[in-house]
Nucleic acid binder design. Structure first.
Length: 548
RNA sequence: GCGCUUGUGGCUCAAUGGAUAGAGCGCUGGCCUCCGGAGCCAGUUGUUGGGGGUUCGAGUCCCUCCAAGCGCGCCA
């Protein structure tokens, strides 16, 4: 539909050009967007305001509007000051949309726009040195939703977790566990100053004592590192699975380092002249790419810095056939972006092929009280505790209710409330209400299965009904936009609005009436809303319960 | 000091550069003999942190100041 209108607008513009009314070249794209309010029609274009001409925008708009009148399914075209062209679609078109929704069901809103292009989404990637925190939870919720949205747009998406299972943090973890082990055996112990003090290591130490007594004291430090990391990793996997987040791939830094990939990437950088040696260390010339200073890749003692294997890792992503990479990082990594991106550009990858989404921190509140967190000190609310307190759906709702680059204040007290004060249930309630209506109708012997009769839908005349139909029309465009902007939050707002309009509609009109055709039409409408709510919630990873 | 992010009713948040800045919570008053009251309806609450600029049009873009969070290692 949009295409048809765009086409005839383009024709109209060519017409203007032919009459020499334009001062600027014809724009490549004609902007056509969904109207912000129903009084402005269904679709809107501001093209007349964009064109440079001797004539007033209003004059141009009126000429262009004429060219649209021919298009089928357009009810009317209005031109409003200062030069908007508002397009009203025929009711028949909206009925058609509803029948598409019912026909396509859970596929409605999906498209093949991505043409199966391979995309890799990397997120969470928390070091296996402690339990997942709520900050990771926010990333998990967001990453999962982005992956689902991209899939719905026809991309072939892989979700990957980069596992920093080697390096100084892991060494510290091992030392910390050894210390706890000695502690529990009644031996003198000391935890490294920048080690891990959380109680979870005590728990592991206790298990070791119960199983092996003091026999492990002879083991190397590495033994404890591996043991602790593996143990914690399996907890992390369990937490994610409880949060309904599933990774397709776990990429081990240790295996990466064992391979020659890191070395290879560094020598490629050297070939291209972006690597030099100074003070016995190997430096990457990241200042060539806007970084504030050059960065060390290989230390004087021969060990890699964090950046080196990370370059190798990203190079490896490209080599695996992904030409579009999306990374979710915490805000503590934002200064890190120029050097990573710089390295990838140096290796010949286009700068737009890597999108980095910074997911800001979450501050947890207990009512008015702020709860502080630090993994190393062992003071934090874990993701597990959060899910236990409020449930996965509510946690997701709050995580996704703000755009990713904003700080999130998470009020535990509000989230725990099982009542109308908790906004998380609003959409779900609409969905279960719909299921309940459908059940009621079935029990009355009214069936709305089978083919939809478009003639029957013409009973939908109320402005509330037409308004809801417009929502259904907007849904596929919403998914499309979301796939481009990688913004998840607008989907939540949309569902919230749709649920709200449906609640109002329900209170004002009866769905199941005495008139057969009207009842069937309204049930179809109700069913359609249910499908959209379900599809939308599913993209967000929130369940759509039939009963609550 | 430098960089990134944020600043919108009492609170938590919306608003592809677009038309009258919207929701929820809170507060006040109403709504089930009938499809789920975790809902609905009405009312209340705004100099979009301050100041300049670009634009037909700015909460949105640019400059500047203020405030908050985070980051500025041969840590990861």
């Amino acid at each position: 539909m949009k295409q048809k209108i765009t086409l005839s607008l383009e024709k109209g513009i060519e017409g203007l050009e032919a009459k020499n009314l334009l001062k600027s070249p014809i724009p490549k794209k004609v902007p056509l967007s969904l109207s912000v309010a129903s009084q402005f029609g269904d679709l809107t274009t501001n093209i007349a305001l964009q064109l440079k001409s001797e004539k007033r925008p209003m004059t141009l708009a009126n000429i262009l509007a004429e060219s649209l009148k021919e298009v089928e399914l357009i009810e009317k075209v209005e031109v409003r000051e200062p030069g908007f062209i508002n397009i009203f679609l025929k009711k028949e078109f909206l009925y058609q949309v509803l029948s598409w929704v019912l026909e396509k069901g859970e596929k409605f809103g999906s498209s093949q726009a991505g043409k199966g292009k391979k995309i890799l989404v990397e997120f969470v990637s928390a070091n296996p040195t402690g339990p997942l925190t709520i900050a990771h939870g926010r990333q998990a919720a967001l990453g999962e939703a982005i992956a689902k949205i991209l899939s719905a747009n026809g991309y072939q998406v892989t979700k990957e977790y980069y596992l920093n299972d080697v390096g100084s943090q892991i060494d510290l973890l091992g030392e910390s566990l050894l210390a706890r082990y000695r502690e529990i055996l009644g031996l003198p112990f000391s935890i490294p100053a920048d080690g891990y003090f959380g109680d979870y290591l005590k728990t592991i130490a206790r298990e070791l004592k119960d199983k092996y007594k003091d026999k492990l004291l002879a083991k190397e430090k590495d033994f404890f590192s591996h043991l602790a990391a593996n143990k914690i990793l399996s907890e992390i996997k369990k937490d994610l699975s409880d949060f309904k987040v599933h990774f397709d791939s776990w990429f081990s830094e240790e295996k990466l380092r064992q391979s020659s990939e890191v070395k290879k990437a560094l020598s490629q950088l050297e070939e291209k002249g972006y690597l030099y040696r100074r003070d016995g260390a190997a430096w990457f010339k990241s200042t060539s790419f806007g970084d504030e200073k050059d960065r060390v890749l290989q230390k004087r003692n021969g060990a890699y810095t964090y950046l080196a294997p990370d370059i190798g890792y990203h190079q490896n992503k490209y080599e695996r056939g992904y030409h579009s990479l999306i990374n979710l990082f915490g805000p503590d990594h934002d200064g890190y972006i120029p050097r990573l991106k710089g390295a990838l550009i140096a290796l010949g990858h286009p700068s737009h092929s890597l999108s980095i989404i910074i997911v800001q921190l979450t501050t947890l509140y207990q009512g008015k009280k702020k709860l502080s967190m630090s993994t190393r000190k062992g003071e934090f609310i874990t993701l597990r505790e959060l899910i236990k307190e409020v449930g996965a759906d509510v946690a997701r709702y709050f995580f996704l209710s703000r755009k990713s680059q904003s700080h999130l204040d998470f009020d535990l007290e509000l989230a725990k409330k099982n009542s109308s004060e908790n906004p998380a249930y609003y959409i779900q309630y609409a969905h279960s209400r719909i299921c309940s209506i459908m059940k009621f109708a079935r029990e009355k012997g009214i069936s709305c299965e089978g083919r939809i009769k478009l003639s029957c839908l013409s009973s939908l005349k109320e402005k509330e009904e037409l308004n809801i139909l417009r929502f259904l029309f907007r849904f596929p465009y919403l998914i499309e936009t979301s796939g481009k902007t990688l913004q998840v939050q607008p989907i939540l707002s949309f569902l919230q609005e749709l649920a709200g309009d449906f609640h109002s509609y329900y209170n004002k009109f009866r769905i199941v009436t005495k008139t057969g055709d009207l009842t069937r039409a309204r049930l179809w409408l109700t069913k359609g809303v249910g499908i959209i709510l379900r599809n939308g919630l599913s993209l967000l990873g929130i369940s759509a319960p039939e009963k609550m």
